[in-house]
């Protein structure tokens, strides 16, 4: 596969929220390209539109205008159904507040994406087992989310995001609710996933988390103000 293949390409992406009489511009023309295998961090002050951008990239929300191509395919006008399909085959999500289903056990939470993909039971068991082992939570398989610590919950969330081997992982402040030790653990896992070929787009407020990325996109008032290559990371890769 071409290393230069674009997973995401946006041109003049805009998002306006209209509530009652107030119109908020969350995104004011974003041009962004993300190559396969890249690890991109999005930073910026609170309210600048990071989550909005990530949700649009993850097809959880649709832009007000602009072009959005996913794997070369224009999906600005895709239906809800088509987007659901693209999501389940290609995307994994990690959130700041973990967002696990409280009524399902660890194992069941992780298996959920596979259920919607229609993966067989044996195959599901195998892949869930692998994912749990990778994240070191196999011994907690029958616990419910409330019975786990924040760090463990986030690991479950990552296991769930990766169990279907998505091409792209979107993470919105994945370490935001964790202490520094657990935060580092989570970042290490994302980096490891990226190393094995998964594209990662992450929103973060933490400069140290951003260190893990190849590229840092700075957003301000709904626009990209700077894009920096992460020298450290590139250097490491060249070695």
């Amino acid at each position: 596969m071409n290393k230069e293949e674009l997973v995401i390409e946006t041109q003049n992406l805009q998002k306006k929220y209209i509530t009652d009489t107030v119109e908020t511009t969350a995104l004011a023309g974003v041009d962004l390209s993300i190559k396969r295998g890249e690890f991109v961090a999005i930073m910026g002050p609170s309210g600048c539109g990071k989550s909005t951008l990530l949700n649009i990239l993850g097809m959880l929300d649709s832009p007000s205008s602009g072009v959005f191509k996913f794997l070369g395919q224009d999906i600005s006008n895709a239906t809800e159904r088509q987007r659901a399909k693209l999501r389940k085959h290609n995307l994994g999500f990690v959130f700041q507040s973990f967002n696990l289903i409280d009524e399902l056990t660890v194992e069941e939470n992780i298996a959920l994406p596979l259920a919607y993909l229609g993966v067989s039971k044996a195959e599901t068991n195998k892949r869930v087992q692998e994912a749990m082992e990778r994240m070191g939570i196999a011994h907690r398989r029958n616990h419910f989310p409330q019975q786990l610590s924040g760090g463990q919950q986030q690991r479950v969330a990552i296991a769930r995001a990766t169990v279907s081997n998505p091409a792209l992982i979107l993470a919105d402040e994945p370490t935001g609710n964790l202490d520094s030790v657990h935060g580092r653990e989570v970042m290490a896992m994302l980096a490891e996933l990226n190393e094995s070929g998964t594209t990662v787009v992450m929103v973060t407020h933490s400069p140290s988390d951003a260190e893990y990325a190849h590229r840092i996109v700075n957003l301000f008032d709904g626009q990209i103000v700077t894009e920096n290559l992460n020298v450290k990371r590139h250097a490491a890769e060249l070695l």
Binding site: L60, E80, A84, F93, N99, Y116, R160
Partner: peptide
């Protein structure tokens, strides 16, 4: 609501 959102995130469509 959270459950519904999550199911959609991991790929459920509305009819499901």
């Amino acid at each position: 609501a959270k459950e519904v959102g999550l199911r959609k995130v991991v790929g459920a469509d509305r009819s499901q």
